[in-house]
């Protein structure tokens, strides 16, 4: 499967992803709360979904025919909010309300507060099941929209993920695309290897295939590979698709990359400035 992305489109996606990463760090710095590592490993994929892959309209966020996205790893909400703001679902300034009283931007996505959020998540393992329900709902009603769902590798320790995997396969949900944000770190993890703190998820490809899913493995920061994977997914029949996106937690900022402590650390003023500088340089 080839990528049909033009050079201009690739440039646009890279720029938007870089802007989103800056917004993530600025927002967490401003709110003095939130997550950084996970949202930044997910940014390129979420940017592709909202700026290229999905059939959506920020001016009609509840259109019944729209494609759906469920952020099952709900603690990466700020990553989704940053992309939604850049895409026009809300003013970018609204990100400053994140995590504060009466804000539409809750710590974990709340579908009742912000149009554009297709499911409430936050308790891990649940979003993928809801995405199965949404995709099944499309099949039952003869709707053509597609459902995308991002899960985490830490999240995959929840047994419910595999309950969902079973049922998606049983109902042959080829309108469902899962994306594993495989950044290989979680909040604290296992201390037997102090540096990597690796989770016990080994070979997710084998696991998802054994549950009857079509698996595509990519570099989750490469827009052409992301696009090719979504194109391939559209051709798969009678099976749900899992895209295993190899990613880097904290991607884009040297001192945040692959550091489990940046799961939810608040940057200092100088860390914020340094991060923004690096992101601006990296985007060129």
């Amino acid at each position: 499967m080839n990528s049909s992305l033009s050079k201009e489109k690739i440039m646009l996606l890279k720029e938007k992803a870089s802007e989103a990463r800056k917004l993530i760090i600025e927002t967490v710095h401003h709110a003095e709360a939130g997550h950084i590592g996970g949202p930044m490993s997910a940014t390129d994929i979420i940017t592709n979904l909202y700026f290229h892959e999905m059939n959506i309209d920020p001016n009609d966020p509840r259109n019944e025919e729209r494609d759906r996205f469920v952020l099952s790893k709900g603690h990466s909400a700020i990553g989704l909010y940053a992309v939604l703001a850049l895409r026009g679902y809300m003013p970018v300034e609204e990100l400053q309300t994140f995590d504060s009283l009466n804000s539409r931007l809750q710590a974990h996505p709340d579908m009742n507060t912000l149009p554009g959020l297709d499911m409430s998540t936050g308790s891990l393992g649940q979003g993928i099941s809801a995405a199965v329900g949404i995709a099944l709902g499309a099949k039952l009603q003869g709707k053509r929209y597609r459902t995308y769902c991002m899960i985490g590798d830490g999240e995959s320790q929840e047994g419910q993920v595999w309950e969902a995997a079973d049922i998606a396969s049983k109902y042959e949900l080829d309108n469902l695309v899962g994306i594993l944000d495989y950044n290989k770190l979680q909040q604290f993890g296992w201390s037997d290897d102090e540096k990597s703190r690796k989770s016990p998820i080994h070979d997710p490809k084998e696991r998802w295939e054994s549950f009857g899913w079509h698996v595509i493995e990519i570099d989750g920061h490469n827009q052409e590979e992301i696009e090719k994977a979504f194109n391939e997914a559209r051709e798969v029949k009678s099976k749900p698709v899992m895209i295993i996106a190899n990613t880097v937690k904290g991607k884009g900022v040297s001192f945040m990359e692959n550091q489990f402590l940046w799961h939810s650390r608040i940057p200092t003023d100088s860390e914020l400035n340094q991060a923004k500088k690096e992101l601006e340089m990296g985007a060129l």
Binding site: S129, A130, G133, L136, E163, D166
Partner: peptide, 23 residues
């Protein structure tokens, strides 16, 4: 009739997803 098997957690989340589609 939709069979969700012996997996109540998934069953209830799937029900939630179905409800968001108008069912």
């Amino acid at each position: 009739f939709l069979q969700m098997g012996i997996a109540e957690q998934n069953m209830m989340s799937v029900a939630a997803g179905l409800a968001t589609t108008g069912l």
